[in-house]
Design a protein around this nucleic acid. Structure first.
Lengths: 222, 222
DNA sequence: GCATAATACGAGCGGTTACTCGTATTTGCA
DNA sequence: TGCAAATACGAGTAACCGCTCGTATTATGC
């Protein structure tokens, strides 16, 4: 049965004519969801907690979202849009083929890490391996966009690399970055944080150098 | 109130004289818990699911464990014991100060990765940042043992490194390894898995080389 | 063989969760 | 001003969670 059957809850299906008040509420709810998610994780972020954090009743929350998953998906979409901007400025800042490696890494890692630190709810949503199917579908676009951009850089800097090697290398680079985000985020001091950023860049630089050495020539073999 | 008050449930407090049957049951439960944890994660691994997987009733499960956390702790302890053996053979196979870097990494990474692949429940228990306090206390010993061993290697191979730099470097190395475990585990084919192992070792080698270059001399400065 | 303790069972308890529903209030539009 | 739609409320509901308890069965010690 596909009739939604609810009396108060619409939130989707036929497009309810949203008022300005409603748009503001949605933004409030998403802000609250990000905050609750950041400090509780996905499972412990109850819908009632999110509603309370947004300063509304549970019923009001469900005027705008049909279920918890839809809230997460909407938040993921909002993150994706913001992150999309950050990606563009990060990856298009310089020609990846000619700029020195250290500078390239600075220009990409710094804004990406800044975004991750500024949005603590982000990794609760994108870095968890155990979320509902629909949810991980919502996070896939941004994952693949990132993968594509890193592959693009590898194509420019290690043109001799086979496509499979390029994809694998990009995956490894992304995974390394993601692994060090929590370390940087939980750093005890600003000094420690800066030192960890240096180490992160050292890891990426080392691996990128290895990839360039393999893929700089035309043969892509070990 | 500290009297346990239960009628059927003892499981701790005065040491119930365990029968051989009980020991077998405990092993069964731990096996079942590892399996359920591996494919569901900690939150979704319900005690009833674990009991069903072990082929017993929920009540029987609580004859041996006072609560869910105790099951996870016991499983963590069992993993710790097994992993302790793997650690010893991995880290004491060769003198870390003299053996070539590539061989050292092979000798450590291979058995560690094999253990992670052979025990899928392991990372569900040890790699999650969002578990009860008592639980993460149970996982801490093995985390710190690993950290200590890696620090020991760094002390041998990069003696010029300051203590803080050594700890930070060891943390980074461990985090990189842990980040690539899921990639290797979910590899589509044996070839892909082997290729990813090569990349993992490349990352570790590259970073280790950088650390050795910094810490090889007696000054530990950038 | 028999008393005692350990093991086994499973319906069910209190608590929490995502979500609903009847109803009251506010807004946009004529 | 009046009215339909959108927004708001919050106690309530079904489902599921970890866990219990009364009771039945099986092993151990003497």
């Amino acid at each position: 049965m596909d009739g939604d059957g609810g009396s108060g809850a619409g939130a989707r299906q036929q497009p309810v004519r949203r008022q300005a008040r409603g748009e503001r509420r949605i933004a409030q709810i998403l802000d609250a969801a990000a905050a609750v998610l950041a400090e509780s994780g996905y499972e412990a972020a109850t819908t009632n907690k999110i509603a309370a954090a947004a300063g509304i009743s549970p019923g009001s929350l469900y005027q705008f979202f049909p279920n918890k998953e839809a809230i997460a998906k909407a938040l993921a979409d909002r993150f994706t849009a913001q992150m999309g901007g950050a990606h563009r400025t990060a990856f298009e800042a310089a020609d990846p083929g000619t700029v020195p490696l250290a500078e390239l890494i600075d220009r990409i890692v710094d804004p990406l890490m800044a975004f991750n630190l500024a949005n603590p709810g982000f990794k609760a949503l994108f870095a968890r391996p155990d979320m509902p199917a629909e949810l991980s579908a919502a996070t896939r676009p941004i994952q693949e966009a990132l993968l594509g951009r890193v592959e693009g850089i590898l194509a420019a800097r290690a043109p001799g690399l086979a496509a499979a090697d390029r994809t694998r290398g990009a995956r490894v680079l992304i995974q390394v970055f993601k692994a060090l985000v929590p370390l940087v985020a939980e750093a005890g001091s600003e000094d420690e944080r800066a030192a960890l950023m240096v180490e992160l860049k050292r890891v990426l630089t080392g691996y990128m150098t290895a990839l360039e050495a393999r893929g700089g020539a035309r043969r892509g073999d070990s």
